[in-house]
Simulated assay, not measured.
Amino acid sequence: MGGGAVTLFLCGDVMLGRGVDQILAHPGEPELREGYVEDARSYVRLVESANGPIPAPVIPSWPWGEALRLLAEAAPDVRIVNLETSVTRNADFAPGKAIHYRMHPANLPALTVARPDVCVLANNHVLDFGREGLQETLDALARAGLRTAGAGRSAEEAYAPAAVPVPAGGRVLVFALGAHSSGIPPGWAATSDLAGVAYLPEVSAAAAAEVVRRVREEKRGGDVVVVSVHWGSNWGYRVPREQVAFARALVDGGVDVVHGHSSHHPRRIEVYRDRLILYGCGDFIDDYEGIGGYAEYRDDLRIAYLVTVAADTGRLTGLRMVPLQARRMRLEPAPDADRSWLRTTLNRISDAVHVTLDPDGILVLTHPGPARHTGTGP
């Protein structure tokens, strides 16, 4: 949307490695070094045992499924995803990690088919195959014409924002950070002469002030600023107080949207000073079907977030959330009962905002109104 508004597509973790990589046209080596699973094809079998056969090899659009149709209809100005996998043929498994994700570079059409404008890389899997694997990831994404944020060949590159011009005349700046609390090893931090991620050792007032300093150095009039943060635990609805304070400090310092991810299911939504804070977007694409445990969180349900902000101020003017369901490693429309469950859950865990379900099955945030500070704590 031009003419005074900017619409963003945001989602949680896009994991096209491991089992997803194995059903695509160019699967990489299936070797794993997990406690109980040594072959990535085992995850394909788990998915098929839960939801039926997959017609492998699948076409590149398969994992996105219904999401591609909704993106075509919504026509967002900027598409931002957290790419939670390395893109490499490297076999140098990062030591001390229980889980490693990689996709074969030849399978990148399964990412480019969604036309992401920014791939966030500040997460706990982008260096699963070492710095050589990260270098290959960066090279592969650059060859595909994809912008990245949150990882780079140096700290300067890792902490730099991705800048996307928008029809309204300004830019969307995407800064990305990966917190220690999401499982990122401290040794993955980018330095002046070492490739790595934009690392957040702790979620603190001092760390927020440093992010704000970087934002103010880069932001120009008419820019919309998104800070994408990979943080926190995989499960549970509780949002730690320090995350709330950090996100609000970013907004106080000029950030327009806080895009949180890492949790396997959606977490609370907040509107603070007319700016949107998503504490956890949940998973989007992965191979997790058929894995037992935590069923009460319904991690098979996924959300595509369509965020509209005023181009001149960054003020939130609308949030639509499209419920999807993972079936056979493909996103399908969520059933009506599950859409209602998501609405009820988001309303229960979010303070001072209200989510409704429109006749088209889209979840809509009722905006609380100008200059109202919402959310009272975790």
Rank of each mutant, 00 (worst) to 15 (best):
residue 213 R to E: 10
residue 283 D to V: 07
residue 358 D to E: 11
residue 329 M to Y: 06
residue 241 R to K: 05
residue 104 H to A: 08
residue 147 R to H: 08
residue 346 L to A: 06
residue 135 Q to D: 08
residue 170 G to T: 10
residue 274 D to A: 13
residue 124 N to M: 02
residue 203 V to M: 15
residue 132 E to S: 12
residue 178 G to M: 07
residue 296 E to S: 15
residue 193 D to I: 09
residue 121 L to A: 04
residue 340 S to V: 13
residue 112 T to K: 06
residue 178 G to E: 14
residue 110 A to S: 10
residue 114 A to D: 04
residue 34 E to Y: 03
residue 274 D to F: 05
residue 143 R to V: 02
residue 44 V to T: 10
residue 75 A to R: 12
residue 173 L to H: 03
residue 279 Y to E: 04
residue 311 A to W: 15
residue 47 V to M: 07
residue 144 A to C: 05
residue 126 V to D: 00
residue 122 A to P: 09
residue 217 E to V: 04
residue 301 L to D: 11
residue 157 E to W: 02
residue 335 P to F: 08
residue 15 M to T: 11
residue 175 F to K: 04
residue 196 G to Y: 04
residue 309 V to P: 09
residue 220 R to N: 13
residue 182 S to L: 01
residue 144 A to S: 04
residue 119 C to W: 01
residue 104 H to Y: 03
residue 131 R to P: 01
residue 308 T to M: 10
residue 108 L to M: 10
residue 45 R to V: 02
residue 145 G to C: 05
residue 47 V to A: 15
residue 333 P to K: 09
residue 44 V to P: 09
residue 318 G to S: 13
residue 326 A to F: 05
residue 310 A to R: 11
residue 210 E to P: 01
residue 220 R to P: 11
residue 260 G to D: 07
residue 299 D to M: 14
residue 39 D to E: 03
residue 362 I to V: 15
residue 286 D to H: 05
residue 348 R to M: 12
residue 80 I to D: 02
residue 132 E to K: 04
residue 248 R to G: 01
residue 152 G to S: 03
residue 98 A to K: 02
residue 207 A to L: 10
residue 90 N to M: 12
residue 205 A to I: 03
residue 221 G to K: 07
residue 145 G to F: 00
residue 370 P to M: 14
residue 265 H to A: 09
residue 275 R to M: 14
residue 172 V to S: 12
residue 143 R to L: 06
residue 360 D to Y: 12
residue 205 A to H: 12
residue 354 H to Y: 14
residue 24 L to Y: 11
residue 335 P to N: 12
residue 235 W to C: 05
residue 67 A to E: 06
residue 204 S to K: 07
residue 32 L to T: 05
residue 156 E to N: 03
residue 26 H to A: 05
residue 278 L to S: 14
residue 218 E to Q: 13
residue 348 R to C: 15
residue 195 A to E: 08
residue 246 F to H: 09
residue 206 A to K: 05
residue 11 C to P: 00
residue 340 S to F: 15
residue 235 W to H: 04
residue 6 V to F: 10
residue 108 L to S: 02
residue 244 V to R: 14
residue 22 Q to G: 07
residue 117 D to R: 07
residue 378 P to V: 09
residue 148 T to Q: 07
residue 263 S to N: 15
residue 293 G to A: 05
residue 233 S to Y: 13
residue 365 L to T: 13
residue 300 D to R: 13
